[in-house]
Design a binder for these strands. Structure first.
Lengths: 334, 334
DNA sequence: TTGTAAGCGTTATCAG
DNA sequence: CTGATAACGCTTACAA
């Protein structure tokens, strides 16, 4: 590898001058500056970022904790993160979060990242404290199931979103509305369920435990299976509409309906959450809560960079959602 | 941040001993080892990876160049990459590749990564040479459109895959088979098109230029638009079956058919490539070439790690594909 | 078995 | 304006 020393020698200047040129210090005489740039070009030199990081105590790397890279919702957020991070010259290190190996994070990221972005994971207090202590800020996209006061979040107002969605369903005459959530412990989807339930009750509707269907957040298959079981029993569904905590599950539910001869929205209205690209290409297309994925990714990086650069405290942000009414919801049967 | 020096002081040993303990050198007396471990625990110390990298000249980071993180095909590969990389203690740095900023890669990764994994991008010779010179190996998942002899690849045998797919269509009586490829210059999808065309000719069928429909690899919308235009013209399609270079485009084509009243596979058979999760949940489900995404990701990391650890030369690998016959293909009309 | 010290490639502080 | 030189936190001969 070609180092700064070689460049200095080649240009006939000291190593310091090379640094000045690279870092655009305006102190260098134009002539020497050109000499150095010339040498850099000739040697194909670029500064070793690891060495620079060690010295400057800035890695320009941000850790991002995925739950499941295969989930298009999460990658939609990643798109915004990456786009904005690139502008700021930050690289993202993607890691799949495994609760069983949470302690591993401490060593994994040690001295490697300037900040860590969570995707709704509920970290142990111990872990949170550790990063606070070594000065690595945490910020979460999506409110974790077990929120922590020193981990601010960017999210939408799920309560308002579901309130609007429920109103939409009520206009179609639905009064018994089910929900498909996640079985996973401490999933950020639990937050959505709690808001849904609260919004439902606030509208004077009831919610029975047996109206909660268990899906699994990364997997459409699980949703398909669960719904198929309910449908193949021969007995009628206890609800006329179901709201799914994410689109992947809604697509599974839709498949289950199709395979079991249940018409959507004729016999069952399906509403969903997130609005991933695919949700407008199912048949019928899904009515869903639009989650501003790229925007929230961008906002997250901006918030984090602002903190890193100015020391301003990180603070939570609420972004705007929307209800996309498509044809998977309709008049309640009967 | 707590450093190794503090640990040494706290444990009453020299800094070297701390290193020995951390790196499991078997030379340390058990008693001192315990003293050190105790100090590490008490101080909540973990070694600074940046400093370690600088010294060992190993970053344990691998750069991964995406085309579009939103493409589920690419994230499916990432899943395999990440899973295997984690086992080897490697972190992945994901970057979206932008041909306009290709030169930027040199500085971006300088001293930061041990290797770079491409997802079918055709890098400039200049760039390839640069990384060869500084000793950062390149490996590509998917054969680039402009392959380079010093960038080995992992891929399936597309020629064989399409040969089998075409046979499948011929059995249904199709003789005029279109293809939807990518407009993007130098996309890895061009490779697929060339193999398709060759396979078609090899079976004694013809291929006319107007049977090539232009999609765009990251986007289902473009495919939808292109196909809609062809369909809304009122004239019949010149082919009875179409093979799409990826599932995302096939889903767009399917949507276009649905919205234009074209029955699939009654009036048009749709075959596809990749077998992303969603391709089995469209209606009808898509007949497609199964691309072993996680496996190819795993194989890639193994190949790269083997090279990094033993110095063995990187070599290209061909993985097994499969044809998944589902209901989007059927008897040719007429 | 443990300690000392050189050096990885930078940046940044001081003199000159 | 430019040149020495001391860190940054770690690994690893080599010495003790």
């Amino acid at each position: 590898m070609v180092t700064r020393d070689e460049v200095a020698k080649h240009a006939g200047v000291s190593v310091a001058v090379v640094s000045y040129v690279i870092n655009n210090k305006p102190v260098v005489k134009e002539a020497t500056r050109q000499k150095v740039l010339q040498a850099i070009r000739e040697l194909g030199y670029s500064p070793n970022l690891t060495a620079r990081s060690l010295k400057t105590r800035r890695t320009n790397q941000i850790g991002v904790l995925f739950n499941h890279i295969g989930n298009p919702f999460e990658t939609g957020i990643a798109l915004g993160l990456e786009h904005r991070a690139r502008k700021d010259g930050q690289s993202l290190i993607f890691q799949t979060y495994d609760p069983l190996e949470e302690d591993h994070l401490k060593t994994l990221f040690s001295g490697r990242v300037d900040a860590i972005i969570l995707l709704g994971q509920s970290l142990k207090t111990d872990t949170v404290d550790h990063f606070a202590k070594i000065g690595v800020p945490l910020f979460s996209v999506m409110t974790p199931d077990q929120p922590n006061d020193i981990v601010p979040c960017a999210d939408i107002n799920w309560y308002e979103a579901y309130r609007a969605m429920i109103e939409h369903l009520i206009r179609f005459g639905h009064t018994r509305i089910g929900f498909m959530g996640a079985l996973n412990r401490e999933s950020y989807l639990n937050v959505r369920f709690r808001h849904f339930r609260r919004a439902l009750l606030a509208q004077g509707l009831e919610f029975r435990d047996e109206w909660l269907v268990h899906g699994s957040f990364g997997s459409l298959e699980m949703a398909y299976k669960q719904m198929s079981e309910r449908l193949s029993g021969g007995t009628d569904l206890p609800f006329t509409a179901i709201v799914c905590a994410n689109d992947l599950m809604a697509i599974g539910v839709l498949s289950a309906c199709r395979d079991n001869g249940v018409s959507v929205p004729g016999q069952l209205s399906i509403a969903s959450s997130e609005n991933i690209l695919m949700s407008s290409h199912t048949s019928p297309p899904l009515t869903t809560v639009h989650y501003p994925r790229p925007e929230i990714g961008v906002a997250t990086i901006e918030e984090v960079m602002n903190h890193l650069n100015t020391g301003a405290p990180l603070s939570s942000r609420t972004l705007k959602h929307e209800i996309y009414e498509r044809s998977s919801t309709g008049q309640a049967p009967g």
